[in-house]
């Protein structure tokens, strides 16, 4: 059997492609990029949420937020590990991120301006992530699928804690409810943008679907997210900032308005509110840590020299 046929057979049979298997070079490169960008998203995502750790309103909320952000660091690490099985080094991937050649999910290029943003991110961003993650556990590449299974297990509390926080705000004082509404006003459209362009405008969708890296189309995932989330907003008594949002009985789905694609592409290109800050923060931490990493290697070398 020639390698290409064997690869196609594995994918067709819903079997897993493993690291040492022959794979098309573009499959490998696409996976490296996608897994790396997924990992980068987890790491960068620590910043907007980490921004509120010191100001969490109670010790309980502080502990929850710290645990959530630590989980995200761990998820980033699992994903980098999966990417590394494809023959790249984690440090190389980080360098590509720092240079702007790799990207991360655009949602994290928005600032967290109030405490309600934290609950809203948990509700919407983690909600969106969950719709995507369940799909990715069925991805054709073994290490990526396995990392996603582990991540999904740990993810369960992330969305719930955010939504619960919003329940408190929306049943609290008028000021708290207004804080929640303001957060939803700012995060709704960026959340829809997380699902990417219309599939007709996406260069990658078709090939990724063939290779079973992507299992569901962007627009279908976005629709799934809207259908799931609108009743949740209704329960909170919050108004979604979309005048075209309405239930369509015929389709059995919610109709919703068109995304501002100018804003979408501006943020993808690096011109969103926080793009520069996120990367500068990351690069600064990396640079500041250089002497520490060097010291660890130097000490390890000394230890090894001493024992040989």
């Amino acid at each position: 059997m020639i390698p290409e046929d064997r690869f196609d057979a594995i994918v067709a049979a819903e079997d897993k492609v493993e690291p040492a298997d022959w794979m098309p070079e573009d499959y490998r490169k696409t996976l490296i990029r996608q897994i790396a960008q997924h990992a980068h998203s987890e790491i960068i995502g620590m910043q907007p949420e980490g921004n509120w750790i010191s100001r969490a309103p109670t010790l309980h909320r502080k502990a929850i937020l710290m645990a959530k952000v630590q989980d995200e660091a761990g998820h980033g690490l699992y994903l980098y590990s999966a990417a590394e099985t494809l023959g790249v080094d984690r440090d190389q991937l980080q360098t590509l991120l720092h240079q702007g050649k790799h990207k991360y999910s655009s949602i994290f290029n928005y600032p967290t301006l109030s405490w309600a943003d934290i609950g809203t991110i948990g509700w919407l961003v983690d909600g969106a992530a969950i719709t995507n993650q369940v799909m990715l556990t069925r991805c054709s590449y073994g290490p990526y699928a396995r990392a996603m299974v582990r991540i999904c297990k740990e993810e369960s509390f992330h969305q719930r804690q955010g939504y619960e926080s919003l329940i408190r705000l929306c049943s609290g004082s008028p000021e708290q409810k207004a804080m929640a509404q303001d957060a939803l006003d700012r995060w709704w459209w960026p959340s829809l943008m997380m699902f990417g362009p219309h599939d007709t405008d996406s260069t990658h969708t078709e090939q990724s679907m063939e290779w079973k890296i992507k299992r569901v189309a962007n627009d279908d995932l976005r629709q799934q997210f809207v259908d799931m989330t609108v009743p949740q907003a209704d329960f909170l008594g919050l108004r979604i900032p979309d005048s075209e949002l309405r239930w369509n009985e015929e389709r059995g789905h919610y109709d919703f308005g068109e995304i501002d694609w100018d804003e979408f592409w501006a943020v993808v290109k690096g011109n969103g509110p926080m793009n520069r800050d996120r990367i500068e923060h990351k690069v600064h931490a990396w640079d500041e840590g250089s002497w520490v990493r060097e010291a660890a290697m130097a000490h390890a070398a000394k230890q090894e020299a001493a024992t040989t």
């Binding site: 960008q37 998203s41 050649k101 790799h102 260069t203 990658h204 592409w265 993808v268 290109k269």
Partner: peptide
Amino acid sequence: MTYEVPVAPGESSEIEETA
């Protein structure tokens, strides 16, 4: 949500992986 971060119009779609 997608992590395949789309290629903006005018950007190179070359998948850079060396550093």
